[in-house]
Design a protein around this nucleic acid. Structure first.
Lengths: 349, 349
DNA sequence: TTGTAAGCGTTATCAA
DNA sequence: TTGATAACGCTTACAA
C-alpha cells in the first residue's frame, strides 16, 4: 500500500506538505504542490479514508438502518438517500433485516466510528430504547417512526390521510360495504392506514366492522390468499382497500381466477403507487407515496443536522400522500352510473 | 465520546487489558475481565470501528458499486449481498448511479481504507481500465461483466441462454415473425439477450430482421412507447420478446389500450420474472433470474477471496436463467390449438 | 497475567 | 512556506 510517507519521500518533501496539498491548503508553494502531485500520480497514491477520518473525526458517511430491502418501496428510499448523499459527497452504509432489537443495536454499534450520522426506519415499538441509545452517540433521523426520541428529526408519510382519501373515494362512489386488507400486525404504516380506513368509514356514517378487516402481510401472496376469505363474507363487500399495492396485485389476480371482474364486481384500491400500478389490468387506483423523496429528505435533514454548529431543534416532516384515480374502482357502486369522482389530493397525515 | 482509555481508568487496568477483554484474548484473569466489562457497561462504551480497523487493516466491510438502484433487480441484488454479508458479520457500503467512469473511480477511491473488498457491476465497457486500477488495490468481484480483469472472479446471468429459450418457446408455438424490444444500447445484458433472440431465430430456420428489433430502454414507459412502432410493422408480428419484464408490462398495457388481446393477438414474453409477473393479466411468460442469489454468491465469493491466505485463482460462475411458461404466450400461433409446450430449463449462457 | 510502548495513516499544531 | 511531532482510538509485540 502506498502511504503519504511514500509520496513525501518520492517528492522530496515532508508528509505535512503532502497532506496540505491534498487538503487544498493555500500555504504551499507552487513548486511543492507540483512535485507532490507528480509523485502521487507516479505512485498512484490513494489516501486512506479510515486514517483520515480518525484524525478529523469526520467520516463523510451515513448509516442506513432499514427493516428490509424488499420491493419497490425500500429500494426507492435507498435510492433517494443515495442520490442526496452523493450530491453532498457522502457515502452510505446500509444494514437491514434485523431479526430483533439486539441485532439492530449490533449493527449500529458496528457503525460507531465509521459514520457521522444515521437514518433509521424502525417499525417496531420495542426498539425505542435502543434508538435512544444510538441517538445519544450520533445524529439520527427517523423514518416513519412509531415513537418519539428526544432530539431526533422525523420524516413520515401521510399514511392516515392517504388511506382516508382512498376509502373516501370508495364511499363517494356509493360503496357501503368496504373491506380492508390490513398490513402486518405491529407495523406502523399498516396501523395508520387502518386508522385512516376506519375514519373514512365513520366520516361516511358507516360503522367499522372487524369482520371486514382481513389480515394481510403486505405481500402479493398474502393478497392472493385473502381473496377466498373475502368472497366468503356475507353479504359480500363491493369494494376493497388493500393497505399496499402488492396485496392489491395478489388480490386482483385471485379475483380474476375466480372469474370476478374488477371494477365491475369489486372496486379495488391500493396504497404506494408502485411503478407498475398504472400498467395493470385494470390500472390500479392507489395512493401515491414518494419513497424516493422520503429518502432524499432524510439524507438532507441528516446532513443539515450534522453540519449544524450546535444541536438544532428537531423537525417533523410529513410527506403528503395523494390519491391517484385510475380504473380499478370504476365509476359507481353496483354498476349504477354515478358521476366519476375526480383525482384529488390529501395534504396531511 | 467514551474511549478505551476511559474504560481502563474506570476499571483500574491498562488499555491493553481492556482491548484483550473485548477481543476475547484468553490471557486475562476472570477478575480483570469482570471489572472491565462492568466499567464498559457503566460507561456504555462502544469501540471505535475506524480506529480498530486502522490497526488491524481489517474493516469487515465490503463496497458495492452499482449502475443504479432502480427496480426489482438491483434491490434484490443488494438484498442478497446484504443477507450473505450479515451472516458473515460484514457490513456493506453502497454507491450507485455514477454518471461516468471518473465518478465511479472517485467512489472507489473514497472507499479505500474503509472496505476490505468490492463487488462491482459495471455495464459500461469504457470502465475496464478503471476497474483494473481498483482491482489492484483490493479484491473485486464482477457482476455481469463486459470485460475480463485479471484475477477477478465473475458471476453472471445466463442472458444468452435465457433469451434463446424464451424465443425458442415462441418459435415452437409456431410463431414466425417475432419482434424484440431491445434494452438500452451498450448494456451487456441487453446485448446478450439480443444475441440469444437472434440465435433462437436461426435455430428455427428464421432470418433475424433488423426491422423487428425495436429500441427499448428497460423501462415501462419505453415498452409502452414501442407499441405503436410494433403495430405499424407490416406484416404485423405475432409475437414479441421483451428484453425485460418492465418493458413487457408497458407494452401489454399499450396493447390493451389499442384493444388488442394478449395472447390472442400477440404473444408476449419477458425477462427477469419480477415479483408481479405471475400476477399480471394475463400472467407473464418470462425468464426467471435469481437476482438475490447473484448478490449472495458475489458476497460469498468476495469473502472467500478476502480470507484466502494467498490470492486465489479467479472463478467464473454463470447462474442459470429458467423459462417460466405462464399465459402471455398462449398455446399456439394464430389461434390454432397446437399442444402447449411445457416449462423447460435452460442451463447455460 | 499485566502494562508499556510502538505502530496503523492521517491531520493539525507548533516552531523554525 | 515548511518540517517535526503530537494526536486520533485502537491492537499487539515485548517485557515484566
Amino acid at each position: 500500500m502506498v502511504t503519504i510517507r511514500d509520496v513525501a519521500r518520492n517528492a522530496g518533501v515532508s508528509i505535512a506538505t503532502v497532506s496540505r496539498v491534498f487538503n487544498g491548503s493555500s500555504h504551499v508553494s507552487a513548486e511543492s504542490s507540483r512535485s507532490v502531485r507528480a509523485a502521487a500520480k507516479r505512485l498512484d497514491y490513494w489516501p486512506h479514508g479510515g486514517a483520515r477520518s480518525l484524525t478529523t473525526s469526520l467520516t463523510h458517511t451515513m448509516g442506513v438502518l432499514l427493516p428490509d430491502l424488499f420491493g419497490d418501496f425500500f429500494s426507492e428510499v435507498i435510492r433517494g438517500i443515495d442520490r442526496a448523499a452523493r450530491e453532498q459527497h457522502f457515502q452510505i452504509v446500509v444494514s437491514s433485516s434485523h431479526a430483533d432489537t439486539e441485532e439492530m443495536l449490533a449493527a449500529a454499534r458496528f457503525m460507531q466510528g465509521r459514520i457521522d450520522g444515521l437514518i433509521a426506519m424502525v417499525p417496531d415499538k420495542g426498539s425505542a430504547a435502543a434508538i435512544r441509545r444510538i441517538a445519544s452517540r450520533f445524529p439520527v433521523i427517523l423514518l416513519n417512526p412509531r415513537f418519539e426520541v428526544a432530539g431526533c428529526s422525523t420524516i413520515s408519510i401521510a399514511n392516515f390521510g392517504g388511506a382516508r382519501a382512498a376509502v373516501e373515494h370508495l364511499t363517494q362512489l356509493g360503496h357501503r360495504r368496504i373491506a380492508i386488507l390490513k398490513g402486518p400486525g405491529g407495523n406502523v404504516d399498516a396501523e395508520e392506514r387502518l386508522r385512516g380506513y376506519q375514519q373514512a368509514l365513520r366520516d361516511a356514517g358507516l360503522q367499522p366492522d372487524p369482520e371486514l378487516e382481513l389480515e394481510g402481510d403486505f405481500s402479493q401472496v398474502g393478497g392472493h390468499r385473502c381473496a377466498s376469505e373475502l368472497l366468503q363474507l356475507a353479504p359480500r363487500p363491493t369494494a376493497v382497500f388493500a393497505a399496499n399495492d402488492y396485496m392489491a396485485v395478489g388480490l386482483m389476480s385471485a379475483l380474476r381466477d375466480a372469474h370476478l371482474e374488477v371494477p365491475r364486481d369489486f372496486a379495488v384500491a391500493g396504497f404506494d403507487d408502485i411503478a407498475i400500478a398504472r400498467y395493470m389490468n385494470p390500472p390500479l387506483t392507489t395512493v401515491r407515496v414518494d419513497a424516493q423523496e422520503l429518502g432524499q429528505r432524510a439524507a438532507l435533514a441528516l446532513i443539515t443536522s450534522m453540519q449544524a454548529p450546535s444541536k438544532p431543534s428537531p423537525t417533523h416532516t410529513v410527506l403528503p400522500a395523494a390519491l391517484v384515480v385510475r380504473v380499478s374502482c370504476g365509476s359507481a357502486a353496483n354498476g349504477s352510473r354515478a358521476a366519476r369522482s375526480r383525482p384529488r389530493l390529501s395534504a396531511g397525515g
